[in-house]
Design a binder for these strands. Structure first.
Length: 197
DNA sequence: TGAATGATGCGCT
DNA sequence: GCGCATCATTCAT
């Protein structure tokens, strides 16, 4: 096995059209250097939320206190609480002011699996990160990570040259407006997705 | 295996 | 007060 080249992704990766980034972010490795140790996972599923005209996007109708990070620099983390219970983690994309993001909905655990099991007890390894709320719980992501610069040293993406041979698309999950848009992207071969098929 | 449901907090009208 | 980018549990097939 030749060792894969690990290239850290910078601002320019995020400073592009969201629908162009979406298929490319699949297979990239998200690294989190937490206080308890290093966690990493291969991205398998994302959804796009784009701008003030997308009715499902938190930026719809203009900026608010909560959605502020969405309007910031590309490569910013946008984290919010959903249903009073779980957190959702987003990569902010496009130029500052455009307010677009990719919601991380699924990943495959690589490093720090023990820590993930401590955060999410009693589950199989491929059920640790297969859903946006579950990813945040297992990784230990919360509002303290909101607004974090993803080109810094805490949380960032690496390109390990993992090939994603087949990319599936579908409508977005769990929304009531903007349902017709095919803005969910996933690695068909993965067994760590929020939904199968 | 799938449908229904409750948990639970907060942003926004 | 309503609705929400979710998930685990329960109950039914």
């Amino acid at each position: 096995m030749p060792s894969a080249q690990k290239k850290r992704l910078g601002r320019s990766f995020y400073d592009r059209p969201t629908l162009e980034i979406a298929p490319e972010i699949l297979g990239k490795v998200l690294v989190y250097n937490s206080k308890r140790g290093r966690l990493s996972a291969r991205v398998t599923e994302v959804e796009a939320y784009i701008g003030e005209t997308d009715p499902a996007c938190h930026a719809f109708g203009g900026p608010t206190r909560r959605s502020q990070p969405l309007f910031g620099f590309p490569g910013t983390a946008y984290v919010y609480l959903i249903y009073g219970v779980y957190f959702c983690f987003n990569f902010v994309t496009e130029r500052e002011g455009k307010a677009a993001a990719l919601l991380l909905r699924g990943a495959e655990a690589m490093e720090g699996v023990e820590i993930m099991h401590e955060n999410s007890p009693g589950r199989k390894e491929n059920r640790l990160l297969n859903g946006p709320g579950k990813f945040c719980r297992s990784f230990g992501i919360d509002l303290t990570h909101n607004g974090l610069d993803l080109t810094g040293n805490d949380i960032y993406l690496e390109d390990h040259s993992f090939a994603v041979t087949e990319i599936g698309t579908s409508t977005r999950i769990g929304i009531s407006k903007g349902k017709e848009l095919m803005w969910r992207f996933f690695d068909v071969r993965s067994d760590s997705l929020s939904r199968t098929a």
